[in-house]
Design a protein around this nucleic acid. Structure first.
Lengths: 207, 207
DNA sequence: GTCTATACATCGATAGAC
DNA sequence: GTCTATCGATGTATAGAC
């Protein structure tokens, strides 16, 4: 009877392979709707169709369940960004690909991503030991790498690649925030592309 | 014995003028550190040096206390943005003033602002009835108004003022997120200005 | 592995005296 | 207005049977 919660990414389950996965999905939905702290494990297990000891068997604690959600989300986001940045094209296109990939992933996995986003910003003292900073560095690092390439090739102006990455990150944060908030006037992919183009082309009138 | 919590912005208190204010400050710090849902009223009143009935006398409930924090924060932020945008100068300077004002206010009142920010993103179902959307519209509206002026005067390119406002909002969100997360590499005012300049001048090399 | 039943703490909020 | 004392509900987690 090994404790399974030592590796929350392992998707195989000893007896009922679906119980663990159902718990993850149910938790994402409930944590999203009521907030992690306000959600009760009773609600989660009922929504997942299991009982409390099942949750504690797989995840060890309520926090372990949250941690598993954060880890899968961060892993998939990092993978999507790396894949999008690696595709061929101009730097502007490749940066656009990264932004679209993030946008798409958040839309596709909204509950998990909203839970991750909320956790990111809520109560450092309460947080489980999860290195959001590493995810940050991965994404910003990928942007900075692309922009530095663009500067060296002459496609972009010779500015600080760090500052440029932050400018792009701003557009990314805008998209993320809007998706997370489910704003009714939120940007679709075309709108995201328009704003991104503004950052590349500038607002100032060139004389 | 009128219930005072009908107007959370009223700063006058019947007997002990400091008790209400001390509760607001203590709550901001505790909600910031542990999260609203995880913080207990016991902790808050102890940290404020009062007893539970005092809290319920002034704010009616734990949620009423949160609401009072959100309202003062939103009011002051809206006032700061309006004042900064009204000052004379080029549009680029005035937009810069707005961003700096937001940046300054968040640094000065970090607990309140972090609590507001976390609430903004956490668990719509749990949220008190607070119209964050109105604050959003105020800030974005002010940006859009300024940018439209800049477009009409010829200082800026003839782009969509809505898209341009979103591009600037991205820089603002970047600043806010960094301050809220207390990142050690977060932008100071000079850095914020550099990123803002990049958005005005563009990343692309102009041929 | 998964169940029933429960232990045990803590929560938000209030009653009633002063 | 502010106190002490407490209520009733709910929380996470676990013991013990199977």
């Amino acid at each position: 009877m090994e404790p399974r919660h030592t590796d929350p990414l392992d998707s195989a389950a000893p007896h009922d392979p679906s119980a663990r996965q159902r718990l993850l999905q149910a938790a994402a939905e409930i944590f999203d709707r009521k907030g992690y702290a306000s959600a009760s494990v009773r609600e989660v297990v009922e929504h997942a169709g299991v009982t409390k000891p099942v949750l504690y068997y797989y995840f060890g604690s309520k926090q372990g369940l949250l941690l598993a959600i954060l880890e899968t989300g961060a892993r998939d986001l990092a993978l999507a960004v790396a894949a999008a940045g690696a595709r061929a094209g101009t730097i502007r296109e490749r940066v656009g690909n990264v932004c679209m990939a993030v946008h798409t992933l958040i839309r596709a996995r909204s509950s998990e991503m909203r839970v991750s986003h909320a956790t990111y910003f809520t109560a450092a003292e309460l947080l489980p030991t999860f290195d959001f900073h590493q995810l940050d560095r991965t994404i910003v690092g990928e942007l900075e790498r692309l922009l530095r390439q663009g500067i060296e090739s002459g496609e972009l102006r010779p500015v600080s690649s760090t500052d440029a990455a932050l400018a792009i990150l701003g557009v990314l944060l805008l998209t993320i925030d809007q998706e997370v908030l489910r704003r009714d006037d939120r940007l679709d992919e075309a709108g995201l592309q328009r704003v991104l183009d503004l950052v590349f082309d500038g607002l100032r009138r060139t004389p």
